[in-house]
């Protein structure tokens, strides 16, 4: 009942109500995701997908109906999608037992760690839509259709966001290259 009232406030644009509502429903979303997905990281991604979908379809909530089934249906679907796409990824992966014998890249561990931290910071500085597009299209290597269904962004918007994210990253990391005191090869 209280969540329903908060959601009504959300539909009229109340930011504080939204922040409160999303934080309050987070344990329930987590419970639904963990019931479907054993892997905690996958479950967390499913929760984020559910939050993005919930945000996109907030106009479909009808205050005359209970809030929890509406939210749970979205969370269930996103967890199922996440599980299916993980299954497809697992089917494509090939276990290479000799992987441990592959020589490590030439760069020293410390330098690679620094580059990773820089990349992470650069991704973190991107707008949320670009982060989402990058994560789904480039890191998880989902098809545009899958990424669109997962994020609630259109295929066109995803393409634009991915392109902008890559351009921003290049710009940011290129700028770091130019200004960094650390020499690069």
């Amino acid at each position: 009942m209280r969540w329903s009232a908060l959601m009504v406030a959300v539909q009229s644009g109340d930011e504080r109500a939204y922040d409160r509502l999303l934080r309050e429903i987070l344990p329930l979303l987590r419970g639904i995701a963990l019931a479907r997905l054993r892997d905690a990281a996958e479950a967390e991604d499913a929760i984020q997908d559910a939050l993005l979908t919930l945000h996109r379809v907030r106009a479909t909530y009808d205050p005359a109906r209970p809030f929890t089934p509406w939210m749970a249906a979205i969370a269930e679907r996103r967890a199922l999608d996440r599980g299916r796409s993980r299954g497809r990824r697992a089917a494509r992966e090939v276990k290479v037992e000799a992987a441990e014998h592959i020589p490590s890249p030439a760069a020293p561990e410390a330098e690679r760690g620094l580059a990773r931290a820089e990349l992470r910071a650069a991704i973190g500085a991107l707008p949320v839509s670009q982060q989402t597009a990058l994560k789904l299209a480039k890191i998880e290597e989902l098809s545009l259709m899958e990424a669109s269904a997962r994020s609630g962004l259109s295929v066109g918007a995803l393409k634009v966001a991915t392109h902008r994210a890559m351009r921003n990253l290049r710009k940011r990391l290129g700028a770091l290259d130019a200004t960094s005191c650390r020499p690069r090869s």
Binding site: V10, Q11, S12, G13, D14, E15, R16, Y18, D19, L22, R23, L26, E44, I47, Q48, L51, L52, H55, R58, A59, T60, Y61, D62, P63, G124, V128, Q131, K135
Partner: peptide, 22 residues
């Protein structure tokens, strides 16, 4: 990105929406 950060980003700059008819 952390889920809490996503929540903060979604709620900041929230725009009102017209409820969809049934």
């Amino acid at each position: 990105m952390q889920t809490e950060e996503l929540i903060a980003q979604l709620s900041s700059g929230l725009t009102p929406v017209r409820r969809l008819p049934g």
